[in-house]
Design a protein around this nucleic acid. Structure first.
Lengths: 190, 190
DNA sequence: TAAATTCGAGGACATTTGTCCTTTCAAACA
DNA sequence: TGTTTGAAAGGACAAATGTCCTCGAATTTA
């Protein structure tokens, strides 16, 4: 729970006392490798802070292929945001790549927090703004860099995931085919 | 101001009285064609609702080319969000494609609104969440569709901008070159 | 254990997209 | 009015990326 408190303090002013006051709303939970935090078609009623581990977010495209849209590492938040926010069925599945420890909050409790305290309204808004900026950055990168640049960026910015996820998933995360990624990897190692 | 009120009401519950209470924080302003709402290097201290008109958001890439990242049409919000939220110099310029009417709020006043009322905290959070979802959609489209699919989507989803913006800007918005867009347009008309 | 399946590498070829260039046309301007 | 500038179309070629395929190794399943 300590790492979650530090995470919150890094984005908004928050005293230990204030954190303690609302602590009971948050639950610790482990997610075994390959199990799901969210599933396509089910309304997602939890958001989570990743204390330890790695999660993969994907959707199914019109060719029935899994398209990975996100790898979430520890010390980050994850959720099927659209489903969680709108309380509609999820278009995304979120699966544990390895055994993962989460701190979660459910939708109803979060709405209660928002009702109870402007502190949490502020935290919620700030987090949404941050997520927006992260997504903007991701969009800009994926649309304007070549396949090779994107792979090199992944190596640099998320080196720890390279040995944990499949080539297939990495390729779809980068928006390229396996064949292209194979070529790039060969060229890099040479 | 009416259209702005309707816009707000479409995203959060808001009574006419509540809107009137805070109305004085918002200023109407016109932006002549080609003038700027935000400029690269300057800290952006306003966010705006577009009552009428069209704005283009762009940045300068490493080859000193203008890269268009957004066309914002009427009944939408615009801002150099990152700069506005963080109050750091903007990486984006926002320019009027045609004479445009805005309803704006400045950073300090918005912070005051957040302080004064949970209604505005809620509006701010909801808007941030919405912007996130829009950006997620944009990222997904641009990364997973072909040049032709993206152009057809633009024709379908933002038909009104086609005759207002240059081919050059449209191409960079779609993440493709002018040459490619020229080929696609030729193919479509045939 | 044996069979079946999945995954990753990479060959051969096709398609898409980009680069560089020229031409034309229209708008801006002295 | 004549000149300049910039936008758009498109030719020729190059580079990047995708498609389809096979192979061998690893993994899963019966």
């Amino acid at each position: 729970m300590e790492s979650f408190k530090l995470f919150l303090k890094s984005i908004v002013p928050l005293s230990d006392q204030e954190f303690e006051n609302y602590r009971q709303y948050f639950k610790a939970r482990t997610l075994p490798r390959n199990s799901y935090f969210a599933e396509i078609g089910k309304t997602s009623n939890e958001a989570a802070f990743i204390k330890k581990g790695l999660l993969r977010t994907y959707y199914i495209n019109e060719k029935y292929e899994e398209m990975t849209s996100c790898f979430c590492e520890e010390n980050n938040l994850t959720a099927s945001y659209k489903s969680f926010i709108s309380q509609q069925p999820s278009e995304l599945s979120i699966q544990a790549v390895e055994d993962t420890e989460l701190i979660t909050i459910n939708y109803t409790d979060l709405q209660n927090l928002y009702q109870q305290s402007p502190i949490w309204q502020n935290i919620g808004r700030t987090i949404a703004e941050r997520q927006y900026m992260v997504m903007e950055q991701y969009a800009s990168v994926l649309c304007n860099e070549t396949a090779k640049q994107k792979y090199l960026r992944l190596l640099k910015e998320q080196p720890s995931i390279i040995n944990k996820v499949s080539i297939k998933d990495m390729a779809s995360y980068l928006g390229i085919t396996r064949r292209t990624l194979s070529r790039i990897r060969k060229e890099i190692t040479k």
